[in-house]
Design a protein around this nucleic acid. Structure first.
Length: 108
DNA sequence: CAACTGACGATAG
DNA sequence: CCTATCGCCAGTT
């Protein structure tokens, strides 16, 4: 088991904090973890640690609110998991951020 | 150690 | 709206 950087550990931590019924973007997680440019690294963490750490990987979508996985590569699974949490997709197959984007902390 | 990789993001046309 | 590029950067090989 490789040692992960502090940045990576934070990414894992943030992903675990995403509440059920909400989604977050790759860039958002990276930014909250201290590196706004590290979106691609979030991907690597999901690849290497999502299964091991039992992360809610399906709650991560791209900046447009779309599923980034290709059909046959997990797209259907992710969509199903999200819909099971009460998240739905609009006519362009996107998630409405106004309703479902995770807003950490007192954004009220 | 160096190259490669990728479920991204921003920008330009 | 779409495609094409470039920047990004730690984990993996």
């Amino acid at each position: 088991m490789p040692k992960l950087s502090e940045f990576s550990l934070k990414i894992i931590e943030m992903i675990q904090k995403i509440p059920k019924g909400c989604v977050a973007t790759y860039g958002q997680i990276a930014s909250l973890s201290g590196n706004p440019q590290g979106a691609r690294h979030v991907v690597r963490i999901l690849h290497s640690s999502s299964r091991k750490r039992d992360l809610p990987w399906h709650r991560i979508v791209n900046r447009n609110g779309e599923i980034s996985l290709s059909p046959g590569q997990g797209y259907e699974i992710q969509k199903q998991l999200l819909e099971q949490e009460g998240i739905f997709f609009n006519e362009r197959d996107r998630i409405d951020f106004e309703k479902f984007l995770w807003k950490p902390l007192g954004s009220h």
